[in-house]
Structures are given as structure tokens and as C-alpha cells.
């Protein structure tokens, strides 16, 4: 790839560019390994009490077995007037495999609880580099296995579970869906992948187009994957569960929702994932939002393109969860 190729890239949506210009100071485009400790100390969300305040949602925490029997925490959110027998969503947070906790992205989870009366779980998987692959994806899978044993206890229909996550959480969700398929694990009715991080090779056109600019740039992506995979990164010794883009057969998976911005590193790997699902006869809905930087839905909340993309997400969930309700 020549230099002139790498400098050609879709511009940010003007409204998102304005948002980025203002938030840029507190959010450098590049995350390097040395910055991981500082990022972990930076509060990423409003305090949970503040998010839940005035909303008819309860929060319970469970300590459950993770990978190889380690203890991990799963948070469960339910409506205070919850009616038994509805759907459930198993949420996996983002943060590049190296930062974040189960409350990162919880605002969307609360929205799903309220809107669908869904039981939503969010798993505290262990992070790289302290816990390299396969710990993160196996913790998530173990958390999901525990969750589906609790259908009666928590009051949901275990045949109507969606796995959902954004960014690294999207990649882990895709990995968990593959594990469910290959191990005969819980049957999922959907995989909800928001700008998922799914390719350790980091060699697509879009992965070169956003370096030192935007949010979660090429170098940040190197940081995340290096932490997760160490020396194995880029070799043949990387599983499809860690790096789902490496899967050559995406048949037999639940319907996928995939969205991504056109102005981010993950664009091309996410488009390719949807394309492979279709090639293998599967169901996928793909949205590429013009001018979206990574995480634009969360950060550019009021911008038109961000609001429209969230509407599209809910629209898909309406169909995946709503239609099942009607047919049940």
C-alpha cells in the first residue's frame, strides 16, 4: 500500500467532526500499552446509581464460575415489574480487550430492559494482558452458560437469548456465538455486534486509513490485539473464537446485526464478516454509517447519524425479540 493510498479516507460526518473536536482533548486517538493503567483509572461511565435513578430497573450481582473455575461477576438487570417468560440479552462490554468493566455500555442495556422487559446480564470477563486469550472469550462463554441455567430463577425464556456487545465486546460476542455453535452450547436467537473488533491481523484498507486520527486508531488496535494474543498474534495459532474474522465457515450461526462507521479501523473487517455470513447462507443485517468514527453512537449521542444508527439497532432488536413474542 502506498502512502497516497493511506491518506485517502472517508471524512468524518461534519456533526461528528464537531463533537470529536471538542472531546478530542480527553480522548487521544491512540492507545499505547503504557496508557492502559491510566485508561483503567479513568471513569468511563456515569455512576450506576445515577444511570438507574428514577428508572424501573433493578440490579443484582452474581458470582459465577468463569473459565477454569475462576470466579467472575455477572450483573443482571430486570424491570421492577418484570413479567416472567420474556427474552434475555447477554451483554459483553467493550474496551479493546484491555480496559472497561461490565458497566461500560450499560445505558443501552437499561434501555433494552425497559423497552422489551428483557432480562439483561453483563459479564465481568477478565482483561488482557494480565489474562490473555482464551480467558476473555472463555469467561464470556462460561458466563453465558451460567446465565441460561438461571432462566427459571431470573424469569426468562432460555430459548430466546441474544448475545450483544460493542467493539471488543462485539468481537467477543461473535466468538461466543461461534463457541455455542461448535460446542453445542446455548442456542442463541441473535448476535448483536456493534462495530465489532474481530480481526487480529489489522491489515484491511480501513485499518490503515485511520492511524493517529479518530477514535481507536490502527495503533490502538495493535495495542489491544498484542495484549490479547502476545506472540501468537498474526500467526496460524489464533483461534476463530479469539479472532472471528479468521473463520472460513460462518454457517449455522444465529441472525447477525452488524453496524460500523465508514471512518473507522473496523469498517472493512465488519463488512467482510457480513459478506462471509451471506456467502455461507446465513442471515445478517449490515449498516455502514457514513462518517462515523469508532464509538460514534456512544460519544456523538445527539448527532443525527448517531441517533439514526441507534434507531436502526432498536429496529433490529424489535424484529428479533418482538416477532418471537408474537409467534410464541
Amino acid at each position: 500500500m502506498t502512502t497516497s493510498d493511506t491518506l485517502r479516507r472517508p471524512p468524518f460526518d461534519p456533526e461528528l467532526a464537531a463533537v470529536l473536536s471538542v472531546i478530542g482533548e480527553s480522548l487521544p486517538p491512540t492507545l499505547t500499552p503504557e496508557m492502559i493503567p491510566l485508561m483503567r483509572e479513568t471513569p468511563m461511565m456515569l455512576p450506576l446509581e445515577q444511570v438507574l435513578e428514577g428508572r424501573p430497573v433493578t440490579h443484582d450481582e452474581f458470582t459465577v464460575p468463569g473459565y477454569e473455575g475462576a470466579e467472575i461477576i455477572v450483573s443482571v438487570f430486570r424491570r421492577t415489574d418484570h413479567v416472567t417468560g420474556g427474552p434475555a440479552i447477554f451483554h459483553i462490554h467493550g474496551g479493546g480487550m484491555v480496559v472497561g468493566d461490565r458497566f461500560f455500555g450499560v445505558e443501552a442495556c437499561i434501555e433494552w430492559v425497559e423497552r422489551y422487559d428483557a432480562v439483561v446480564a453483563s459479564v465481568e470477563y477478565r482483561l488482557a494482558p494480565e489474562h490473555p486469550d482464551p480467558v476473555p472469550v472463555e469467561d464470556c462463554y462460561a458466563g453465558l452458560q451460567w446465565f441460561v441455567t438461571q432462566g427459571e430463577e431470573l424469569g426468562f425464556d432460555t430459548s430466546r437469548v441474544v448475545v450483544a456487545g460493542g467493539s471488543a465486546g462485539g468481537g467477543l460476542s461473535a466468538g461466543v456465538a461461534l463457541l455455542c455453535r461448535d460446542r453445542g452450547g446455548p442456542a442463541l436467537i441473535g448476535q448483536f455486534l456493534m462495530c465489532p473488533m474481530i480481526d487480529d491481523r489489522n491489515e484491511t484498507v480501513s485499518s490503515h486509513q485511520y492511524d493517529g486520527i479518530g477514535v481507536w486508531d490502527r495503533t490502538s488496535n495493535d495495542t489491544g490485539w498484542d495484549a490479547l494474543l502476545g506472540d501468537r498474534r498474526g500467526t496460524d495459532d489464533v483461534s476463530i473464537y479469539a479472532s472471528p474474522a479468521r473463520a472460513t465457515d460462518l454457517s449455522g450461526l444465529p441472525p447477525a446485526f452488524i453496524d460500523v462507521g465508514s471512518a473507522e479501523v473496523f469498517r472493512d473487517e465488519d463488512v467482510a464478516y457480513a459478506t462471509q455470513i451471506w456467502a455461507d447462507g446465513g442471515v445478517a443485517e449490515l449498516h455502514v454509517w457514513p462518517g462515523g468514527f469508532h464509538g460514534f453512537q456512544m460519544m456523538g449521542g445527539a448527532a443525527t447519524v448517531a441517533r439514526k444508527s441507534v434507531e436502526a439497532q432498536l429496529d433490529w432488536l424489535d424484529r428479533i425479540l418482538g416477532h418471537v413474542v408474537d409467534e410464541a
Binding site: 472531546i23 480527553s26 456515569l46 464509538g295 460519544m299 449521542g301 445527539a302
Partner: peptide
């Protein structure tokens, strides 16, 4: 500015 990891 109320910013939480780049949220405006």
C-alpha cells in the same frame, strides 16, 4: 465539560 471517555 462533562466528559466520560469522550462523551459529549
Amino acid at each position: 465539560m462533562q466528559e466520560l471517555v469522550g462523551r459529549l
